[in-house]
């Protein structure tokens, strides 16, 4: 399917419409991602975004990446995100208001600035007629923009997948092997990090829901039985039951 799509949109109006629709979806889902309060909804927005980008990959004559995007990102990674969200049960964020005052405003202003700078830096030279990939102007080089050659010729020779495969196992074989090692290390790291500690109380800092306001609190907190903890509710109730006088005093 995807090669067909790529070919179909080559330099034609279909590509423009595809770009407009899919780009709108990508932008909308991106905004949704950062604005949705519910983390699960955000994750779904992310999936939508990944899908849109996969479509764009296909249009951009990167059929293999489009598939990979679907499988790895939309399939594996987002599922992993959702899995963690479900596991931890933290789909709800209390509020979007930042503790740091002005963070949101600053971030928005900076985001706009970043966009302008990036667009000017990367996209600036590629807006002329010549930068329409595979167009006459691009091929003859008479346009005023930087010419966009298009991958049609390259992909036509051996196909996108074979071409990538040749590159990966010739020019980039070293990087490829290192990536393999990286993946193994990441897997081992995840296992090590995910391994449950023998004594959970050593992991959970008491009073961890509160910001550690004072530096000195760390030493007191590490003392066993320093106080009831949110994470260790059983212990907390036991403590309060064992010392009813304390509760009476409080009331």
């Amino acid at each position: 399917m995807t090669p067909v799509l790529a070919q179909a949109t080559e330099g034609g109006a279909a590509e423009l419409w595809t770009f407009i629709i899919v780009g709108a979806v990508a932008l909308g889902s991106a905004f949704g991602l950062i604005l949705m309060r519910n983390a699960v909804h955000a994750a779904l927005m992310l999936v939508l975004n990944f899908l849109a980008i996969a479509v764009l990959y296909a249009v951009l004559q990167a059929q293999f990446l489009a598939v990979i995007q679907l499988i790895v990102y939309a399939g594996a990674i987002v599922v992993l995100f959702l899995f963690v969200l479900m596991l931890l049960g933290v789909s709800r964020e209390d509020s979007l208001t930042a503790r740091v005052p002005g963070q949101k405003t600053m971030a928005s202003v900076l985001g706009v600035l970043l966009f302008v700078s990036l667009a000017a830096a990367t996209a600036g030279p590629f807006l002329g007629d010549a930068s329409v990939c595979g167009s006459e102007e691009a091929l003859t080089g008479t346009g005023d923009g930087v010419p966009c050659l298009g991958l049609a010729a390259v992909n036509a020779a051996e196909g996108n997948l074979r071409g990538l495969g040749f590159l990966l196992f010739t020019d980039y074989v070293w990087a490829f092997e290192v990536t393999a090692v990286l993946l193994v290390i990441a897997a081992i790291g995840a296992i090590v990090l995910g391994r449950r500690q023998e004594d959970p109380s050593e992991l959970v800092e008491p009073g961890s829901t509160v910001l550690p306001a004072r530096r000195g609190s760390g030493s007191a907190a590490t003392e066993p039985g320093a106080g009831p903890t949110d994470a260790d509710e059983g212990a907390a109730t036991e403590t309060s039951e064992a010392t009813p006088s304390e509760g009476e005093e409080r009331t």
């Binding site: 932008l27 905004f31 985001g111 966009f115 990036l118 007629d129 329409v132 966009c148």
Partner: peptide
């Protein structure tokens, strides 16, 4: 047709978002 710059602008927008 779609100049290549459009994709880059979209990418920049997504990056900024």
């Amino acid at each position: 047709s779609v100049p290549a710059g459009y994709y880059l602008i979209l990418a920049a927008a997504l990056f900024s978002i």
